[in-house]
Amino acid sequence: MNKKFASLAAASVATLALTFAAGTASANDPTPKWCAGVKIAAFPGGPQGGVFANNVYNGFRQAEADLGPTVTYYFSDWDPNKMLQQIQQAVATKVDGIATYGFAGEAATGPIVDQAFGQGTTFTSLNTALPDSQKKYAAQGFGYVGAPNYSAGFALASEAAKRANLQSGDSVFVWGLKGQGGDRGQRTVGVIEAFEKAGAKVIYQEIDAATNADPNAGTATFVGVMGANPGVKIVVTDHGGLTSNVGVYAKAASLKPGQVYFAGFDMSPNTAQAVKEGYQNLVIDQQPFLQGYIPILNICLTKKYGFSGLDINTAGAFVDSTNVDAVAPLAAVEIR
């Protein structure tokens, strides 16, 4: 091969390479609303406009706006049985994906998950895990976005015990959902076991259905428990709605700011205000906005590109009086 021909051949190869590279770059350009055409059923969890549920809903809506799927919303009033019925309804509509809580547990929800994947519906969970179903279908898109619930409960109680200088024999009041069972109940179990490990006397009260749906309904219960146990040193409210109502409960029980150490889950405008007033002392921020946004993203990635399920811990930080000012403006618009 002469030098002139070799030079021309090299130039031709270089030109082809540039052309291929340019074509590849063009094919992979970002696409707006790339999830358009995908139909999703999304579950904020509680009543419409309720604490925590609205943060999740806002995350869902932002993902819908950003990514372009068509989303139908189901509000369940924190009722596991109602949610289970709604999940069955969603599966019957043969949507492309379902993003929901695992409140009803594996025994009740697992067969519905099987049905969903069997018909091509991607099922993924938020806030409350379905670990057996996730293990079974992770490669097909089943993910989890939320806190590892037992660990989160244990961490909150341990931190509260340390900060409140809890001593063996001291009394603590845990208001939770241990009776709900499954992964959700494990968060309350984690709280209780951390306090028992510290040697505390645990006074436990299950959150009843009325208070679960409307935290104001529990005011008389709180006043009664505190009146019967005047030596309580720490109160843990294992529910975002109840945590948002701590200021109301404390005032109804004639407690002064700082008289009892309050710890709980989830930020809200009222919780931020209670921290600033000194009633609420410690909060785990689960970042529920992410528990809405990422499951929609998860479903879109699976349906469009065949990605496996995402597994993301959203509960990475405590909020207290030292950092509440940074979080409060976001809590006010129900993003944090």
Rank of each mutant, 00 (worst) to 15 (best):
G231F: 09
Q259T: 08
E334R: 15
F117Q: 09
G218A: 07
V91E: 06
A108P: 04
A14G: 04
E196G: 00
Y279N: 01
Q48N: 12
E196L: 00
N323W: 14
T24N: 15
Y144A: 11
S158W: 11
T109V: 12
G50E: 08
V71G: 11
G240S: 07
M267F: 06
A108H: 09
L255K: 15
Q167R: 07
T124M: 07
V191C: 05
G199E: 02
S168C: 04
W34L: 13
G143F: 08
G141A: 10
T31G: 10
F60S: 01
T219K: 12
K33H: 12
T31W: 07
Q287Y: 02
Q115H: 06
D29C: 12
A213V: 08
D266Y: 08
K4H: 09
Y101R: 01
N165D: 15
A116K: 02
Q86K: 02
V95Q: 04
A116D: 04
Y150R: 10
F75Q: 03
M1S: 15
T243L: 09
S158M: 08
A317W: 06
Y293D: 09
T314N: 13
L166V: 13
S12D: 11
K256F: 07
D208R: 09
A92H: 02
P30F: 11
G105R: 03
A36H: 15
V91K: 04
N298P: 08
L297C: 05
N55M: 09
G185V: 09
I335W: 11
S321L: 10
L84F: 02
I87F: 09
A129P: 01
G141F: 08
Y101I: 04
K276C: 06
A41W: 01
I296Y: 02
K197A: 13
G258Y: 08
A157Q: 04
A210E: 07
G97N: 05
S158R: 06
A228Q: 14
A53Y: 09
E193A: 04
F123Y: 05
M267G: 05
V172C: 03
P148L: 00
